[in-house]
């Protein structure tokens, strides 16, 4: 089976960046149909840029991105949006639309010239809302929701697109433990039941280790390593990439890698002086 996404030797720089300063350089990776791939790396490693490239918000300076056998350059925006959906980190704070109106916006790419949604669109939106447990919030304005509810509504909007590839940008960043657990449970269910391929961009290495089939470790715009969580999450490699002292053990529950930071001790001399006095 051919891969769903193939990124071939892509360079990218944002307009206005100093010449030669690439946001991404020589990036190559593939995403197979049905898998969950995690994209991890330190700040400004290029994680968000990868999302923008995969969704054609920006185009590569060099190299190509192939989705389902055809170069992204040949996909129209709305055709691509029928297959690729993004759950953003957050939405604008002031958004007066109701939950149902927002989720229905996910139906736009399925009939961009139509002025009103059809009953079929409404059915797809309601199914997505049921799946993420926000049905009872249908008439509530989005701007009054809590962080966990907003997250589920954004997932519902993405599911209403009925995508083959779901990209999540830091899905658990603003969530407490319970909502993190719900979010991950939902993600796994979508992947298993709908067969949706998932790209998960996250700072949370332990979450990525638990959920993902494969990980892509980025650093300063380059792919450092691609492989299984236990292969990529190596203490030496992470220490080098993140610039701090990282330990990797394995989870007592699942056997997956468990990443910990050895926090630096306070500056030794000052502490000792005080104790002596």
């Amino acid at each position: 089976m051919r891969p769903l996404v193939v990124v071939q030797d892509v360079d990218f720089a944002y307009p206005g960046a100093p010449a030669g300063r690439l946001a991404l350089a020589h990036v190559a990776l593939t995403v197979e149909t049905g898998e969950i791939v995690g994209v991890i790396g330190p700040n400004s490693a290029g994680k968000t840029t990868i999302i923008r490239l995969l969704t054609k918000v920006v185009t590569p300076l060099r190299g190509t991105i192939v989705f389902d056998g055809a170069s992204l350059a040949g996909w129209s925006r709305w055709e691509l949006a029928r297959h690729v959906a993004v759950v953003p980190q957050d939405m604008p704070a002031a958004l007066p639309f109701t939950v149902e109106q927002l989720v229905l916006m996910g139906r736009y790419p399925h009939a961009p010239r139509r002025f009103f949604e059809t009953p079929a669109d409404l059915a797809a939106a309601r199914a997505a809302m049921a799946e993420t447990g926000v049905t009872e919030l249908a008439r509530v304005p989005v701007q009054t929701l809590s962080g966990g509810e907003r997250q589920r509504v954004m997932v519902a909007r993405a599911l209403a697109q009925e995508p083959r590839l779901l990209i999540l940008d830091e899905p658990t960043a603003h969530l407490d433990l319970r909502y993190q657990a719900e979010c991950i449970g939902l993600l796994r269910r979508i992947n298993r039941e709908r067969g949706t391929t998932v790209v998960l961009v996250s700072h949370d290495l332990n979450l990525a280790a638990e959920v993902c089939d494969r990980l892509v470790l980025l650093s300063a715009g380059r792919v450092v390593r691609v492989g299984s969580p236990s292969d990529v999450l190596d203490a030496g490699r992470l220490s080098a990439v993140y610039g701090c002292d990282v330990m990797v053990t394995s989870s007592a529950v699942t056997g997956r890698p468990l990443v910990q930071v050895r926090w630096p001790e306070p500056a030794a001399r000052g502490g000792e002086t005080r104790i002596r006095v």
């Binding site: 923008r52 969704t55 925006r77 691509l80 029928r82 690729v84 939405m91 790419p109 961009p112 697109q161």
Partner: peptide
Amino acid sequence: EAALQLGV
């Protein structure tokens, strides 16, 4: 960005 990703 969200609008672009929805095909607008």
